[in-house]
Design a protein around this nucleic acid. Structure first.
Length: 603
RNA sequence: GGGGUCGUAGUUAAGCCGGUUAUAACGCUGGCCUGUCACGCCAGAGGCCGUGGGUUCGAGUCCCAUCGGCCCCGCCA
């Protein structure tokens, strides 16, 4: 054990903090203050000792002087990084030539008259500084130290401000915050559930909610009119930089509304969040784009509209081309990159490797040069095709144009992601800009190739657009949903819909999904029952709080806006969860692990 | 389930084509220092090179496996 930890420490014993560290300034000069916090830096000159004291909101320099207070000064030599102090002293102005302009409190310092050592600290495994580059596994293992860094503290403060802005906004509009169950029923549509075994009902399981979707609809059936909840949701799927197995949703539902009502409410909420967190004003109404248009122009359903590089379909132009790959492809799209002919062969090779991730076989390209087109495929293109491409893609000298041909999903994924990559490469994305966008008119259903059936794109309670229920039987892929997503800078931050509120339409929907009445009753009987007793028309939306705060803070990872996040393998490095449990616990639940079953058989 | 990448003092990294005692910076410990502010100066300690196999006279370095962090594909209604 660290010898330093055996130091005598003090209790507060009546001392009260008078200020936070970073709030002191010239206006406090000559005041007696009491600060409490951690030793950020110590500069022990043998004579004077300077300590930068840190608390949740910043730093203040405190000075131990042998003349002013000999006893505290002699005790202060033992102070080290991250020791916890309470100090009493007087705010003094610093001499003009000793003002530190880099520090918020650089014009003053505290002349210490007495101090208490509240706790010692081992040498921390990494320096508590924003500029420290520490591996993430170490940060996560010692998360309580990582959170002391001001960047992490700022992120959590921003998260709180966001949540408070949401609460104020929705409260002003008479929304009611209602808690919904965390132990609930597994609904095997959609994401994989986290399951919780029931001790009282052995062999049966609760599921943790993927979202409170059904409960918020039932609250509308319960006549509560307007509901919201800032709520944890759980999905047992693989993680990403912007995905955690447990995440927080701003969940909202309203009765007697249509799309416009929900969307304008949501716009107001996002505007208020931006005003109260970043002091930024967003437009009164957000631009809108249909799903089809987003896929056509950007290749994705969550386009980043802060920059151009749009995609163009050129299938018809190259239909009879000598380039067979183009001629026979179901879809051919091109993306013009103005000035892109500066890309080197090496860079283009790297981009080719990049699009292979999305299933592309290769990457066709043409550099538009002064005299000719430079391209591996130019020789296959007729004069007519060249003219057609030049006109359609508005090609100019100095451009490069990339093509992708094949199945629409692949073409859009490859070019859509290439677009984002090139947007960064050519620095086309303006810093500090926020471009919200509604994406509307989503397909109601999508084909699930594995299950060989149509599944709900959103969820099976999303209402079809007027008239589109009729085509469900004949052309299921064509029906549109009354659904809308809110996209911000290429991230989906919210999504919602108007729900089905009559039993007849809900039944039609289940039929289209291949769910028979018996199955529907077993899985969603409680919702169907509620619809039968006069459910009001209703709809809502849910926002991903973590992603929203990520965008507001500029964090590169969702983990940086969550106090105690999981690693990519869904473990917590600090608590070492998940972990094995005692066999008695398993027995109480009526569970046996497969490995134990094997042992029992063998032994 | 798959692809990529990283793992070397407490930390962050360097370590060439396999070859003597594995470097550096910061941190840490001790000493000196009354105006520093990422203080400075002097001295010192600190290593199972993720782990396990293999190739070799010899492995931090090459090969295989495995564990862990990160990024991505699939997946995420």
């Amino acid at each position: 054990m660290d010898e330093r930890q055996t130091f005598q420490t003090d209790t507060l014993n009546g001392w009260k903090r008078s200020h936070h560290c970073a709030e002191l300034g010239a206006e406090h000069v000559d005041q007696e203050v009491c600060l409490m916090g951690w030793v950020q830096y110590r500069r022990d000159h043998g004579g004077l000792i300077f300590i930068d004291l840190r608390d949740v909101n910043g730093l203040t320099q405190v000075v131990f002087s042998p003349e002013v207070a000999p006893e505290p000064h002699s005790r202060a030599h033992v102070l080290r990084t991250e020791y916890v102090l309470a100090i009493k002293g007087t705010v003094r102005p610093r001499p003009d030539d000793m003002i530190n302009p880099k520090m918020k409190t650089g014009a003053i310092e505290i002349e210490v008259s007495e101090f208490k050592l509240l706790n010692a600290s081992k040498t921390p495994p990494f320096v508590i500084e924003d500029r420290a580059e520490v591996s993430e596994n170490l940060r996560l293992k010692y998360r309580y130290l990582d959170l002391r860094r001001s960047q992490m503290t700022r992120n959590l403060v921003l998260r709180n401000r966001t949540a408070q802005a949401v609460r104020r906004y929705l409260d002003d509009l008479d929304f009611l915050e209602v808690e919904t169950p965390v132990l609930t029923k597994s609904t095997p549509e959609g994401a994989r559930d986290f399951l919780v075994p029931s001790r009282v009902n052995q062999g049966e399981f609760y599921a943790l909610p993927q979202s409170p979707q059904l409960f918020k609809q039932l609250l509308m059936c319960g006549g509560l009119d307007r509901y919201y909840q800032i709520v944890k949701c759980f999905r047992d799927e693989d993680l990403r930089a912007d995905r955690q197995p447990e995440f927080t949703q701003i969940d909202i539902e309203m009765s007697f509304v249509e799309e416009e009502d929900v969307m304008s409410m949501a716009e107001g909420m996002v505007r208020r969040i931006f005003r109260e967190t970043l002091n930024k004003e967003l437009a009164e109404t957000f631009p809108r784009m249909t799903y089809d248009e987003a896929m056509e122009r950007y290749g994705v359903d969550k386009p980043d509209v802060r920059f151009g590089l749009e995609l163009k379909t050129v299938t018809d132009i190259v239909r009879g081309s000598g380039f067979r790959l183009f001629a026979k492809a179901e879809l051919v799209k091109g993306m013009r990159v103005p000035g892109g002919s500066v890309l080197s062969r090496k860079e283009i090779d790297d981009l080719t490797d990049f699009v292979r991730i999305y299933g592309a076989q290769g990457l066709a390209w043409i550099k538009i040069k002064e005299d000719d087109w430079q391209s591996p495929i130019a020789k296959f293109l007729s004069e007519e095709e060249r003219a057609g491409l030049k006109e359609a893609l508005e090609l100019e000298v100095g451009d490069i144009v990339f093509f992708q041909a094949g199945a629409p999903d692949m073409v859009n994924a490859a070019l859509g992601n290439l677009r984002l990559k090139l947007g960064e490469r050519f620095e086309l994305i303006p810093a500090d800009s926020f471009a919200p966008l509604w994406v509307t008119d989503f397909p109601l259903l999508e084909w699930d190739a594995d299950a060989k059936r149509y599944v709900a794109k959103h969820h099976p309670f999303t209402a079809p657009q007027t008239g589109h229920i009729d085509t469900l039987g004949t052309e299921p892929g064509k029906a549109l949903a009354r659904a809308y997503d809110l996209v911000l800078n290429g991230s989906e931050i919210g999504g919602g819909s108007i729900r089905i509120h009559t039993p007849a339409m809900q039944q039609e929907m289940f039929t289209a999904l291949g769910i028979d009445e018996e199955e529907a009753r077993a899985k969603f009987g409680f919702l169907l029952g509620a619809l039968e007793f006069g459910a009001p028309p209703h709809g809502g939306i849910a926002f991903g709080l973590d992603r929203l705060v990520m965008l507001l803070s500029g964090a590169r990872s969702i983990r940086d806006v969550i106090a105690f996040p999981k690693t990519q393998k869904a473990t917590c490095l600090m608590t070492e969860a998940p972990s094995r449990v005692a066999s008695t616990q398993l027995r109480e639940l009526g569970l046996r692990l497969r490995e134990n079953v094997k042992e029992e058989k063998n032994g």
